[in-house]
């Protein structure tokens, strides 16, 4: 079955899962953490009958300090760079035990969760291997907060151009991060996996439905999830959702899916908010000047248009809720 034909249960305002959270309160995420919000909503959409694998990072440390754990699913953390490989092992084990009639006789999604560093930098090899091998019930979630926040806000290959971090500081001869974000969704899609999507907790129904679709589709799925970080971005904690909406409405973080290689733009932004509105809320961009805004605006529009063009190339009729 084609990925875009695979039926799945969408999350709507009416069908929003109101049961207890899969991720319990009492975790140690910072006040106003957009990453733990994304994680909470994704897990809510997937439900507790999954197995989770975390990479080392904020979400791992803040949810599982011995002797406590916030996870109500089976959960394992092994190391930083290998969430995809651990999940591949779990997925293979669950699959073979099912076939050998020594495990539950149904699909159990195995969900690897890592930050941007654990995905795009140190974990990209393990991720590439797992995507390429085609594990059937494998979902990889990159919670992208655009720097190594757990170790103290160092730049990663997902840090956006112009952002001040502790290893891409702005200064007399620096505007902060000097490179553009590594295009992880495109890299994931290039593996020929059936499902890749970007998502953002500020668009919670879209985010949660994408998690459901990822679980329904047979074959590896990759979700790239916008995750605001009040500490690392110098953002007021109460703006976790506001900033997420702006990221989409400025075209900085377009919401799209790639189903069997076909792009679908989920949210058209015809009259975008200027990128400066997004930057002004965050201390990490405080040093940027008007001319920098212009440069970034042009590039943001160009990247957005690319997605629009890709979506026009092979149009897909998306499967409605089953």
């Amino acid at each position: 079955m084609r990925a875009y034909e695979t039926p799945f249960e969408k999350v709507t305002a009416k069908t929003f899962p109101k049961g207890p959270d899969v991720l319990a309160s009492g975790h140690r995420a910072c006040q106003g953490c957009g990453e733990v919000l994304a994680l909470r909503l994704l897990l809510k959409a997937l439900g507790p009958e999954i197995i989770c694998v975390s990479a080392t990072g904020c979400m791992e440390v803040c949810t599982a300090p011995f002797p406590q754990s916030a996870w109500r699913t089976p959960w394992i953390h092994v190391a930083f760079e290998n969430a995809a490989a651990v999940a591949a092992g779990v997925e293979s084990a669950v699959g073979i035990l099912r076939r050998k009639k020594r495990g539950p006789d149904r699909r159990i999604p195995v969900v690897a969760i890592a930050g941007d560093g654990g995905t795009a930098d140190i974990g990209i090899q393990a991720l590439s291997g797992a995507l390429e091998r085609g594990h059937e019930d494998f979902i990889y979630i990159c919670l992208d907060n655009e720097a190594y926040m757990n170790t103290g806000i160092q730049r990663s290959s997902e840090t956006p151009f112009g952002a001040n971090t502790t290893t891409s500081p702005s200064g007399k001869r620096s505007k902060g991060q000097s490179t553009w974000k590594k295009d992880m969704p495109a890299i994931a899609a290039a593996h020929g996996v059936p499902y890749v999507a970007t998502a953002n907790p500020a668009f919670h129904l879209d985010l949660m439905s994408k998690a459901r679709r990822a679980a329904a589709i047979e074959g590896p799925a990759y979700l790239h999830v916008y995750s605001s970080c009040p500490t690392g971005w110098r953002l007021k904690p109460e703006l976790a959702v506001t900033i997420g909406k702006l990221a989409v409405n400025t075209r900085i973080f377009p919401l799209y899916e790639v189903l069997d290689g076909r792009y679908v733009l989920n949210r058209k932004v015809d009259s975008p908010v200027p990128v400066s509105e997004y930057f002004k809320l965050q201390g990490r961009f405080r040093h940027l000047k008007e001319e920098d805004y212009g440069y970034i605006q042009a590039r943001v529009n160009e990247e957005y248009e690319k997605i629009v063009k890709l979506a026009e190339t092979f149009p897909v009729e998306l499967q409605a809720a089953s």
């Binding site: 319990a24 309160s25 009492g26 975790h27 140690r28 949810t63 599982a64 011995f66 002797p67 406590q68 754990s69 916030a70 996870w71 109500r72 699913t73």
Partner: peptide, 17 residues
């Protein structure tokens, strides 16, 4: 110590943030 240094599900509820 629990074998394997594990924790019970949802036990962060013991920690009042």
């Amino acid at each position: 110590l629990p074998p394997g240094f594990t924790a019970e599900p949802g036990s962060t509820l013991e920690f009042k943030t």
